[in-house]
């Protein structure tokens, strides 16, 4: 049931995704602030399919040369492509403190035992500025294979970006910067090079009192 209703291709499903800041309060307490978060969902057949977005509407927001979004989509499989619109929660006081930890955690599951590679490209005006590549091995748990990228440190570029964004006095200014800031995550089977999931992330600042929000879309070519 999760196919078409959550971030799931034929062979890999995203269970959880978060980018966060941990601030130690005292030796026993750590304050965790979630900038963005996709929680566990358990869709059923009665849930509606995700809305679709024509991938051509966003090609220019991501790398367009060799290995870019267009080429990746042409290679397929088409049901592995998603767009996530995040409303990031920036309602937090940031100070420079070396005891702070900026991290990203994500979890995936599969019926297959494999080794996955996750490439995360941060893009400005559609051009890649930094890339992180991570390799993850499966753990067999409760009848399926689980992949955990646990507390991966956020890179210096991203930490500086968040700090600069926070210094802007108005939300509309932050959104204007975020309009040209995107992230492309591609999860691949390391050995077969098959695309398992391709997730295009775009951002606005949350105005909600309930923290980070998101919408997930299927990407397709009409």
């Amino acid at each position: 049931p999760w196919q078409g209703r959550s971030i799931a291709g034929c062979k890999l499903r995203m269970l959880e995704f978060s980018a966060f800041l941990e601030q130690p309060q005292d030796p026993e307490t750590v304050n965790k602030h979630l900038f963005v978060h996709i929680g566990q969902s358990n869709p059923t057949y009665s849930d509606p399919y995700l809305e679709a977005v024509d991938i051509r509407q966003i090609y220019d927001k991501f790398p367009e040369k060799k290995g870019g979004l267009k080429e990746l989509f042409e290679k397929g499989p088409p049901n592995a492509f998603f767009l996530v619109k995040f409303w990031a929660d920036l309602s937090i006081n940031l100070q420079d403190d070396s005891s702070f930890f900026y991290g990203v955690s994500s979890q995936y599951e599969s019926a297959e035992n494999m080794i996955i590679t996750s490439s995360t490209k941060v893009c400005s005006f559609g051009k890649q500025v930094v890339e992180k590549v991570e390799t993850e091995y499966a753990r067999f748990e409760s009848g399926r294979y689980v992949f955990r990228i646990h507390r991966s440190p956020l890179c210096e570029y991203m930490i500086n970006f968040i700090h600069k964004l926070k210094h802007l006095p108005e939300k509309y200014m932050m959104n204007s910067v975020l309009e040209n800031f995107t992230i492309l995550q591609v999860v691949t089977n390391r050995d077969t090079l098959e695309t398992l999931l391709c997730i295009a992330y775009v951002f606005e600042v949350s105005t909600s009192e309930h923290g980070a929000q998101h919408h997930i879309y299927r990407l397709l070519k009409d």
Binding site: E51, Q57, K85, F125, E204, S208
Partner: peptide, 23 residues
């Protein structure tokens, strides 16, 4: 926006793209 960049608002995107969920 620099020349050639089409604003997101000018693109064909679902209405929900501009509506922050209130959950």
């Amino acid at each position: 926006n620099p020349a050639g960049h089409v604003p997101m608002r000018a693109r064909q995107l679902p209405a929900s793209f501009w509506q922050e969920p209130r959950t």
